[in-house]
Computed example of a mutant assay.
Amino acid sequence: MMPLFSGLCRINEKNIRCYLFTCLIFFVAPPLKAQVKAKDENPDSLVYCKPGLANSPRPKFFELSRTSSYFHNARANNYLTESEERKRVVSNDRFEAKLKFPLWMHPGFNMFGGIGYSSETYSFAKSGSQRGDSGFLSNIDEQTLKGVSAKIYATKPFKSNKFLFAKVGIKFQGDFHETHSPVNSYLNYDAGLLYGWKSSEDFVMGAGIAASNNFGRFSIYPIFVYQRNFTNRISLEALLPASIKVRYTTFDSRNIIYGVSEVNGSNYRINQPEILPGANGAIVWQNANVDVKLGYEREIHDWLWFTLEAGIRQNLRSRIRYPEADGQEVILDCNWDQSMVFKAGIFFVPPRKLLNRH
């Protein structure tokens, strides 16, 4: 349950509505098994709810990954200078490192912490123009945009089939250029609360609410979870509006094949005024994509796995505005063509012997 809120972004464009509508179809399907009934009316005789499904993969506590998309066209419309720029994207590369660790472990309450680092670069086909005297796309060529995050996850199970899950997080995102701007000018934050119920060992549902503040723009939206085991090897995880994943696990539990559709995004503050011609001060660049991918995970050792993914990326939104809280005006729109996307990484999980002890 811990990754539920990670990567959530506020998407309200028309081209995502069909995606969400398709996701909600899964909620009308009845569960495979009847609801779990209390063995005793006395609450003291019950055990605490365990939110996870039976036969779920072991949780990741450290992950290194690189995601790349290649060879597609980009177009930027600068409303400040009333100009248009077209470029060929050679690659868009994103490196991520994530660590999760326990803070408090108890049958009636669990708390975990998480920290993360990311860096992202765009490389464009070279032309005769030089950086600094062209448009936005030319000026972000080979620029490194970074992110540093910290999160806390908490789960409160009850002596029934119900539980609460909460998450709060902060993230610093931008070019971190040497200017007089304070570090907190790069700050974003988000929070969420989910109420869930476990009808059986193979069926979990939940609903809640999440909120975020991205450089002065506050948003609030509903969240849903639907997790279901069709068999001991095939399962579905719908974490809306973030992702839908269908997973197949081999009999030895050392190979996982899955298909996933997920929304991901980034928000960067750029303090270099020369990056966007015509801009008056710092700018905020917002991106949102939908990735549809096939993935494969393989156990290398009891605690070490690798992952490979390949699929298609569709951009939903890419725009620039000023960072002021009331800055609703879009000063640049980017359009990115559909592209192939690839991901490779390794991750660490708790050893089986350690989990069996608990």
Rank of each mutant, 00 (worst) to 15 (best):
M1V: 03
G7Y: 03
N12W: 12
K14H: 12
R17E: 09
C18I: 14
Y19P: 01
F21C: 02
T22N: 14
C23A: 11
L24P: 03
L24K: 13
I25R: 08
A29V: 13
P30A: 09
L32C: 07
L32P: 03
A34P: 06
V36D: 14
K37C: 12
E41A: 15
E41I: 14
N42R: 13
S45V: 10
L46H: 15
Y48K: 04
C49I: 11
K50C: 11
G52C: 06
G52Y: 11
S56R: 08
S56Q: 09
F62T: 03
S68I: 01
S69L: 02
N73H: 04
A74E: 07
N78W: 05
N78A: 04
T81Y: 12
R86M: 09
V90A: 11
E96C: 12
L99C: 10
F101Q: 04
F101V: 00
P102R: 00
P102F: 09
P107K: 07
P107W: 00
G113Q: 02
I115C: 10
G116Q: 08
A125L: 13
G128I: 08
D133Y: 07
S134L: 13
G135L: 05
L137D: 03
L137S: 03
S138N: 13
I140A: 01
T144W: 06
T144P: 10
L145H: 06
I152H: 02
F158E: 00
A166D: 06
K167R: 14
G169H: 06
I170H: 12
F172K: 00
N184G: 08
S185Q: 00
Y186S: 02
L193T: 05
L194M: 08
L194E: 04
Y195A: 07
W197K: 11
W197S: 09
S199T: 01
G206S: 01
A207E: 02
A207Q: 07
I209G: 00
N214H: 14
G216K: 07
R217F: 15
F218H: 12
V225T: 06
Y226C: 06
N229K: 08
T231C: 09
L240A: 08
D252N: 15
S253N: 15
N255A: 15
Y258F: 15
I270L: 00
N271E: 01
P273T: 04
P273R: 11
P273G: 05
P273F: 13
A279L: 02
N280Y: 13
G281Y: 03
A282F: 04
A282D: 03
A288R: 15
V290P: 11
V292R: 15
W303F: 08
L304C: 05
F306W: 10
R313H: 09
Q314N: 14
L316W: 12
R321W: 09
P323S: 05
P323C: 01
Q328I: 11
Q328S: 15
V330I: 15
D333Q: 15
W336Q: 07
V341Q: 04
G345V: 00
I346M: 07
L354E: 06
N356G: 11
H358Y: 09
